[in-house]
Amino acid sequence: MIQEIEITQLRTLTELIKTRFNYDFGNYAMSSFKRRIQRILELYKFSSFDALLEKINTCDKKYFQDFISEITVNVTEMFRDPSFWVELRENILPNLLMDNQTISIWHAGCSSGEEVYSMAITLKELDCLEKVRIVATDVDMAILQKAREGAYSIKNMELNAKNYERAKGAFSIDKYYKEQNGKAMMDKSLVKDVIYREHNLVSEVSFGKFDLILCRNVMIYFNQALQNQVLKVFHESLFKNSYLIVGSKESLIWCEIANKFTVVNNEEKVYKKTKE
């Protein structure tokens, strides 16, 4: 059994990562970051924390990418929090589409892409998929690759189907995938115009303006300071009167920039940018 990791050790590790690879995990929320590191120590059978430090100090870029994949939490679902997707289908999207010929959506921290498919399916059923430009980003390149492939485990489709139904989907979710080699192969035409790209919310700036940003269950892994910083990027990346949506258990109330947003739906954590 490896000794409990100390906060000072975590600092040493994040400093080393910053110097060697220019990724800054220094402001990730301590409790889950520590747990992920603990998990890596066990998974890769490191004999001690120092052995991990040594490895990070000498490893190549490829190894480091795998390491990042292990640090990030990628758990996701289609139509996660169905009541939110109902709100999106019945209010937010119709509102946006009433006022605009075309709209653009950013999925920040899209993980393996289930959220993007949920969006595309919803748009398709509203008959407006063609009017929407979608950008989906994540810091984890391996998970982005999964998102591009759109091949999900059949086991997960049961939950996805139930969520879709609760989200008042118009059909049955079978309509959108084919079973092949034990995988659910999503209908790629849904996402043919989606741009998937690597983007690190910690270090990168705004890269465009959007009508809707979804960043759900991502900032729970950041501390308050980093959350404040990332929200500035989102604020900059939104048109006035456009929407930011975070996870159902997150809130902007403690954030510096909160006064530039108003709450549209507190239950589903829908915010509107009301001030520049």
């Binding site: 906060i7 929320a29 301590m30 409790s31 889950s32 747990r35 992920r36 939490v73 758990v75 996701t76 269950n217 729970i220 892994y221 308050q224 258990k249 997150e250």
Partner: peptide, 10 residues
């Protein structure tokens, strides 16, 4: 730390 809650979808 800081006497706050942290949620995770781990």
């Amino acid at each position: 730390i800081g006497n706050t809650f942290a949620l995770s979808t781990d």
